[in-house]
């Protein structure tokens, strides 16, 4: 191996190690409830409210396009009334959690990395530390805690809006019989799908907020460092979500199939 390639591998492993330490500190601090409710509620509010527009638009248009496309295919084999069932299952299991996570990574992940990164380059994090405050307790824990609680809510919101929008398109635009549409949707989509969606959302909330906090806390010097940290927070969060999604789908599918 060339020395620069070696260096990159070493740096990557060192980064993973640091990330693991951050995750451990955060978990320990979360479990000891070393968080002030005011900071937590503020993060809960800002993550939830900041994401409303993207979550609603993503949910609605994904549901509608999925409904239309499913109808076009199913119409050929005279299964029009199964349209909403396909939409409901896909929205709950995959599209709802994943697309919400990707949008939140762009909206909230970037904001977290930029804010913490700016605090780091302007020595505000050092100031926190000299004021006998652990940066993980003060900055990371409220964000991760709030993200883990907000993501399932945002995901459920996207799923409901998506299914609702798809229902409207199917009945009003495509002229499918509403009664059969609902009947099939309720028959094929069940509690298991909601469990899968919510479980995934909890994971993605944790992944996005932890990666973004980590990128902010380890950000390089100056405005350039903050810019790079912000971009990396979004890219790494999005890629990690997509990869983890595959494994969660397999694991949860197996688990819920067995139960």
């Amino acid at each position: 191996m060339t020395s620069s390639a070696k260096e990159r591998v070493v740096n990557m492993l060192a980064g993973l190690g640091e990330f693991a330490f951050l995750a451990r500190d955060t978990a320990a601090s979360l479990l000891r409830l070393k968080v002030t409710w005011r900071d937590f509620l503020f993060q809960f509010y800002s993550i939830g409210v900041e994401s409303q527009a993207v979550v609603l638009i993503t949910g609605a248009f994904t549901g509608m396009v999925l409904g239309a496309q499913t109808y076009f295919q199913f119409h050929k084999v005279h299964m029009d009334t199964a349209t909403l069932a396909v939409v409901a299952v896909s929205m709950c299991d995959e599209l709802g959690p994943v697309l919400t996570a990707l949008m939140v990574a762009g909206r909230v992940g970037a904001a977290i990395a930029a804010e913490i990164g700016t605090m780091r380059v302007t020595e505000q994090i050092d100031a926190l530390r000299t004021l006998a405050t652990h940066p993980v307790d003060y900055l990371v824990v409220p964000r991760v805690g709030a993200a883990i609680l907000t993501m399932p809510l945002l995901t459920m919101e996207a799923i409901c809006v998506g299914i609702g929008a798809s229902y409207l398109v199917s009945t009003r635009l495509l002229g499918i019989d509403p009664a059969y549409l609902w009947y099939n949707a309720l028959h094929f989509a069940g509690d298991a799908d909601i469990v899968i969606g919510v479980t995934k959302a909890v994971f993605y909330g944790g992944i996005i907020s932890l990666i973004s906090c980590y990128k902010g806390m380890t950000c390089g010097q100056g405005a350039e460092g903050v810019g790079r940290a912000t971009t990396q927070a979004v890219v790494y969060s999005a890629i990690t979500v997509l990869i983890v999604n595959f494994f969660l789908t397999l694991t949860l599918g197996k688990l819920l199939g067995l139960l």
Binding site: T122, E123, Q124, A127
Partner: peptide, 8 residues
């Protein structure tokens, strides 16, 4: 701090 480092 040299830069004051106030929480902005």
């Amino acid at each position: 701090f040299q830069s004051a480092a106030l929480f902005d």
